[in-house]
Design a binder for these strands. Structure first.
Lengths: 216, 216
DNA sequence: TATGTAAACTGCACTGAGTAGTTTACATTT
DNA sequence: AAATGTAAACTACTCAGTGCAGTTTACATA
């Protein structure tokens, strides 16, 4: 079992017992919710997994909903941070976009990313703020980063993009192709990073070059 | 209330009373499951909505799972049929791809399509065969249709596509851009058909023309 | 070093609500 | 007459959240 002191803000000042318990609860809840969803997870199991009494769980969180919200927001935050790389206009375009895109696709398709997406999708109706937060603070920023990059490169005369926002969204989704859907809707395992790399590179090439021999 | 006779195979031969009840149950279950998901739906409410006693529901379906499976497979089938148009290699490429793509995107983002997707995603773990069936008999065929089209047009020398399968998947996802994700993960309403049309047309243009002024 | 205190934790029984599926006794349809 | 449907009560179970009596921990003071 990893030392809880190595978890959150400071690992120099030892955490209070109460804070240790809270982290254990969050960690257990994270596992159980990811695995079973909101309805499938029981507060008894979460408490047991956290090695904590059920009463303690309710001392820290007023309700199952509150615990779920806290846990999910934390996971969304972590995923957002991991998804966003910077794009340097000075680097080689194909290379820069491929690196950015591979990371993006891997972050989405990697098992825990997939599980997080599933939970979000499954619970939009009951927890609208979660999906909204993930989109507003995560996906939106990723798209904006790419859009800004496309705008700059268009201004530099390297490419021609009319609507950078629209093109960025289209480009990003073209990177994962059918896999996003397949992984979300079936039990198929996510593709290997090597395959992702290849798929993204191909999509970047198509985006940059086009496929038509003689443009109409 | 619509006449159940107008629903399924034949509306000439009147359906047996038993069959009428079965259709009423399916129709009610469809509504409730789409709205509340598997766990949120109760068999009592479904029976009540179908104007049928709970015992009758259990006379037709052995369990809640069985009813859910039947209802969902039916909806998947209908959605698959609606998603798949033909692609004539002789038509203008941009026009053909735009028409095909608009229909595809609209079918996915339209409210009931969205709800169906959400349910599938939310229940993959408990009903793996559903998502698998939807992918194998639906998405896969759509991709294959586009891939075959790209192969033919490449052979005709109109375009250059190395891996038609991969390109088809990438092309199809580039059509909906961020919207697929946004609609799935937030409560945002689906875009208007006009907006879809515009977005798809732009993506088709990019796919066909590319964006690079001077190819590297 | 010993002791007091407040806050937090434990364990467990309990309430109350919801629900899948069954049973029974009777009615309707074909 | 046989099959099918109805209504309502009933079983058996899960699970969120509470109450409570007693214990542990951190920390301050003596």
């Amino acid at each position: 079992m990893p030392d809880p002191n190595w978890q959150k803000p400071s690992c120099l000042i030892p955490l209070s017992r109460s804070e240790q318990k809270r982290l254990a609860i969050i960690e257990a809840a994270r596992k159980i919710f990811l695995d079973k969803g909101f309805d499938g997870a029981s507060m008894d199991v979460i408490a047991e997994t956290a090695n904590v009494s059920k009463r303690t769980v309710y001392n820290h969180y007023a309700s199952k909903e509150a615990l779920f919200g806290d846990v999910m927001l934390g996971m969304c935050q972590a995923k957002m941070d991991a998804m966003l790389l910077t794009l340097s206009p000075s680097d080689d375009m194909a290379e820069a976009l491929t690196e950015f895109g591979s990371n993006f696709v891997n972050q989405i398709l990697e098992p825990e990313g997939k599980a997080l997406l599933r939970i979000l999708v499954a619970h939009v109706d009951r927890f609208p703020e979660l999906g909204q937060a993930f989109f507003d603070n995560g996906a939106k920023e990723v798209i904006a980063t790419v859009a800004e990059y496309l705008r700059i490169q268009t201004q530099a005369g390297l490419i021609t993009v009319d609507d950078p926002q629209d093109a960025a969204g289209s480009f990003l989704t073209s990177l994962h192709g059918e896999f996003f859907f397949r992984v979300l809707v079936t039990v198929a395992p996510p593709p290997e990073p090597a395959q992702v790399q290849k798929m993204v590179a191909a999509a970047v090439q198509r985006f940059l070059h086009g496929v038509l021999v003689r443009p109409v």
